[in-house]
């Protein structure tokens, strides 16, 4: 990785001797380069926070404008599937976190297996989500010409479901990207060990995965639990 070495030359501060013990080829990203990469990922996640923040903002403004309709519409979401999916995603974060730990201590094969588990859970989430979408579509909850919602709150309910589909859609898109990245890294890790797939990149993939998890942690009460009692 030429760029890593290149920017490692212009070091601002003296490096710890730890760097000297790096075995070539094995998680050989210099520590400062790793910090650059991790910090870069955090800044990226900051932008993602604001990206999703707009969706939460739209949600908040519309819920404030149509409180009763949001309550009624939210009761039409499938809380069981939503809860199950939350559990699936939270669990996938645990396996991903463990995969990162495994990569950090050089256990490439364990890391690859944990990442496979992570992406499997991600696919389970997407499958459940897809099934939920299908059910909502057949129940005429998809906004548009076929939308049907009994009672005077139909307008606000349609807005709720618009936000529901847009936010969960953007979330699912991010998760699908995460599945792709984690899958690709797991494949390289299984084939060539940490020489092929550096631990530093896996750390970043983990940060991204956890972020997508956090978005869902907030989407869950916002969409499924508005008014259940």
């Amino acid at each position: 990785m030429t760029t890593a070495i290149a920017s490692a030359e212009a070091r601002p501060r003296a490096e710890t001797p730890a760097a000297a013990a790096d075995k070539p080829g094995l998680a050989a990203t210099p520590p400062l380069r790793r910090r650059e990469m991790a910090f870069g990922m955090w800044v990226f996640l900051t932008t993602e926070t604001l990206f999703f923040g707009v969706l939460f903002f739209a949600y908040a403004a519309m819920r404030f404008a149509h409180p009763a309709a949001f309550a009624a519409a939210s009761r039409h979401t499938d809380v069981a599937m939503g809860t199950l999916n939350t559990a699936v995603l939270l669990t996938s974060s645990v396996t991903m976190a463990l995969a990162v730990e495994a990569a950090e201590i050089g256990r490439a094969r364990i890391a690859a297996r944990l990442m496979t588990a992570t992406l499997a859970l991600g696919i389970v989430f997407l499958a459940i989500k897809g099934y939920a979408y299908h059910r909502e579509y057949t129940e005429h909850l998809f906004p548009g010409a076929a939308f049907h919602f009994a009672g005077p709150l139909a307008g606000g309910a349609e807005t709720f479901f618009w936000i529901y589909f847009v936010t969960t859609g953007f979330h699912a898109l991010h998760l699908a990207i995460g599945v792709g990245v984690v899958g690709f890294m797991a494949w390289r890790l299984a084939r060539g060990g940490l020489a092929a797939q550096s631990a530093a990149s896996i750390v970043n993939a983990g940060l991204y995965w956890h972020f997508v998890d956090i978005v869902w942690i907030f989407l869950y009460p916002a969409l499924y639990l508005v008014s259940r009692s």
Binding site: T16, A18, D22, A27
Partner: peptide, 13 residues
């Protein structure tokens, strides 16, 4: 191998 803990600033410790 010592790349283990080089994530954080205080990793060396």
């Amino acid at each position: 191998m010592s790349a283990t803990a080089s994530l954080g600033a205080r990793s060396a410790k």
